[in-house]
Nucleic acid binder design. Structure first.
Lengths: 252, 252
DNA sequence: GTGTTTATCGTCAGGCAGACGACTATGATC
DNA sequence: GATCATAGTCGTCTGCCTGACGATAAACAC
């Protein structure tokens, strides 16, 4: 290894990009912001920014998340509580051509949050929105929403990786509760799985599975809320973080 | 996002570090190299180096892997063949204090390889070796080998993350075959699982599981080899990359 | 009250895994 | 060559989990 004289290694810009997912109106949605500058001016992109000099990668991601959404990321070790979101590192993207201006390495992070009122990107409500990932990843179809154009940079790929991570991770972990408010019903949790996976699950088998897994859900005493029919029991996330045996996605 | 004037963002050094795992003598081993310079001079570390200006992260990892071991990483999409190793991105480490000299962000990669004769680190055989991960991660016990001191930098953490990734990934993927030569027996594959997980598996149930999973193993025609007892059938890795249902690690 | 919606409990059959018996085919040892 | 040790391979049995689905319960809209 050569010595660390700055003239002997190429300098890189390091950024964090965020895949922030939530479930809104039965659909898995991601937070996107509109780019104000070239390149990709006017296109939608994932939120992100430079890592500061004395900042850890996870801290930079948490800071960006707070700036964009007001969410406070919390330690994955501690149980989800309050207005906190799950935040984890996703992957790092460093293709030399991914940014036409210069060499940028982006450490992408994945954040899962309960349904939020509305994003706020630096006060400009028009420049940030929740968009169904289905629309973002299948561009050109141009539905009612705006993102008929693909995401800027390699953000479509990053988003796809984040979505796939979320889809697979709720199989064998209790992470789906990160999409729920602190108290939720089994039906609400089931609708999270259905939205993330894009499938329909049997309510009876789902109920048996989640209530039968020790440590997954703990009854919160509060016994009811309404969403239409018979009142349901309220739960909060338990201490268990892994699901064993896992909740398997239905086959293709 | 500010414009990309180099004076407006802090420059980082970006490196790739490699967690190269193999199975030798019934033990999961990692490749470590001895550091020739300060800091951590004389300590063992994971192999790695700077990412070059026009090089993708995966290419940099593949290049380092070839330099250290002569292995040729191949595309995970294609089936394992020849002298190729599995290579995938692991995680990125960017604590501001992880390198005392300057700000270095390291994109760690995980490589899995069949048992190799001997590492060669720039021709210096003394400066690279395979060490059981058990010894590397539980330092201070100072057994017969040398690594009584912990690994340099945050490499113990990186190695631990890589080992955990490998341990969990062979559960639900066919990745364990990456530790085997092109042709192998069911018993050899079972010993891979036993070494990586540090458990003992029932040969009969294991045989039923792996031969019963479609696409996992394909008989290579060649019917026998010897390792002691009755000759065993030879297989090569099949096209399946995911194991469904997974092969579950025995409980604690 | 009737119908609709959602929640929750039960039942049943099939698949899979762990425990383990039995048999086979080789080399090693006497 | 008989015996033993070692591995590989095939079966059996039992218990758990899941998917399919019937049935009941508790709210709301008429």
């Amino acid at each position: 290894m050569p010595p660390y004289d700055p003239s002997t290694f190429p300098p890189f810009a390091v950024t964090v990009d965020l895949v922030v997912l939530t479930v809104r109106r039965h659909a898995l949605c991601a937070l996107v912001v509109r780019r104000g500058e070239t390149p990709f001016q006017g296109r939608w992109a994932l939120p992100g920014g430079f890592v500061r000099t004395d900042e850890d990668l996870g801290s930079a991601a948490a800071r960006e998340l707070a700036e964009e959404t007001g969410l406070c990321a919390h330690d994955p070790a501690k149980p989800a509580v309050g207005n906190g979101a799950h935040l984890e590192q996703l992957a790092t993207y460093g293709d030399p051509a991914r940014d036409p201006r210069m060499r940028v390495v982006s450490v992408a992070h994945l954040a899962l949050a309960p349904d939020l009122p509305a994003p706020r990107a630096g006060g400009d409500a028009n420049s940030a929105r929740w968009a169904p990932v289905e629309d973002l990843l299948r561009p050109g179809t141009g539905r009612e929403g705006e993102p008929a154009t693909p995401l800027a940079f390699d953000h479509a790929r990053i988003l796809a990786d984040g979505v796939e991570r979320a889809r697979s991770k709720i199989e064998y972990s209790s992470l789906a509760t990160a999409f729920c408010p602190p108290e939720f019903t089994v039906g609400e949790l089931r609708r999270v799985y259905e939205a993330v996976w894009g499938v329909v699950l049997d309510p009876r088998n789902f109920h048996r599975k989640v209530t039968g897994t020790p440590g997954f859900l703990v009854p919160s005493g509060g016994t009811t809320t309404r969403q239409g029919g018979r009142p349901a029991q309220l739960f909060r996330a338990g201490a268990a973080t892994v699901l064993n045996p896992p909740m398997l996605r239905p086959e293709v």
